[in-house]
Nucleic acid binder design. Structure first.
Lengths: 196, 196
DNA sequence: TGTACATCAGTGAACGCGCGTTCACTGATGTAC
DNA sequence: TGTACATCAGTGAACGCGCGTTCACTGATGTAC
């Protein structure tokens, strides 16, 4: 493989440095997949041989898929538990966002796996994201379903931004709570204030 | 290592399945670090032997650090280039957010490396995030510097949420542009509308 | 009641892979005398 | 002007590691006769 490149002449060795950095940046043009815990690490944590995993899962992908499904189920259960069904839509929305943020804070790695990764291909149309969107949309006052979807997406963006940044930049000067940050962002969206 | 665990009796084999999933979820309690491109992959892309990297970098970490620094410099340059310095603060803020979102869209892997990863330890206090925060804060009308920081953080959350979700959930029903989503979220923040 | 057998829930060794890192080397280019 | 030598910009083979996956096996537990 070396030989593709002609060797630098005497003073130009420094150029490889810049080329290496540039090559790395080129490699970063496509999104980088977040790695899930390794099959061996999971087996180790269970006190079991790696090959034992294959008794229950056809491959690492199948195991990951099961993990994601389970995580999504737990998140959904948490959101259900936090939902004051008798309250007003605005209050329910607020409770939903709070539960979402709490879950993200308590399960950072899991949050990343669900929301900082492309959905597995066979989840198309019913991944964690789209389900959450519907849940949000149902609580919005707009009558136009299209506007509702758009607003729900924006709320999701806001709350995801709060959750994600707090996970990755813990040393930022966070003054308020995650929930109040989310509230401040969501409060301004058209049609939401009118309903409160 | 196996032996820690007693073998299941006859009908209970299915329980390992649940234990494996639970163990994986336990492992996901701590945040998962996004991997940077491997040293060997970078060397390969340059047509150079892996060991040649060590002529310019003491370790993989040093290379990664240089990559992150360079990426951050490029982002900053893009933001500078997009800044209409003669315009009003509100217009400059809008331009800044637009440039940020464009950069994220055009360099998804790089965006992840900068903003979906903890800052390298020796960057504490001047990482991409905090720099960006100052930049935002300077464009805000609030006089109280503390309120300005808080608002800047919220804006960052909003715009990060839009950038990040678009990268990871491309199949969501994105109707508007990233920029208009960010605008809608930011527009409602206290003190911003008054300035426009 | 005893025994042969099937099944279940795994084990353990091995494979090939890519990884970061080391180390001795090589061959062209410049410099000293 | 020629030649010995130092330096520069790398190469190439090797190391030990963790990984996903395979395969032949093992030993306890239940079932059939």
């Amino acid at each position: 493989m070396p030989g593709t490149r002609q060797r630098r002449t005497r003073g130009e060795g420094e150029r490889l440095r810049a080329e290496l950095v540039a090559a790395a940046i080129d490699l970063l043009l496509e999104p980088q997949p977040l790695p899930a815990p390794s099959l061996r690490a999971i087996a180790r944590a269970c006190g079991v041989a790696p090959s034992a995993v294959y008794m229950h899962f056809a491959s690492q992908d199948a195991l990951n898929y099961a993990v994601i499904t389970e995580l999504f189920g737990r998140l959904r259960a948490d959101l259900d538990a936090a939902d004051p069904e008798a309250a007003s839509p605005a209050e329910r929305l607020d409770a939903l966002l709070g539960a979402y943020l709490t879950w993200a804070e308590n399960h950072p790695g899991a949050y990343q796996l669900l929301f900082e990764r492309p959905d597995p291909l066979d989840t198309e149309g019913e991944g964690p994201g789209l389900d959450l969107l519907d849940r949000l949309a149902r609580l919005l006052p707009d009558t136009d379903p299209q506007a509702r979807r758009a607003t729900a997406l924006r709320i999701w963006c806001a709350v995801h931004g709060v959750a994600s940044l707090r996970i990755h930049k813990p040393s930022a000067p966070w003054a308020a709570t995650a929930r109040s940050d989310a509230r401040a962002l969501v409060a301004g969206l058209a049609g939401l204030l009118a309903d409160t």
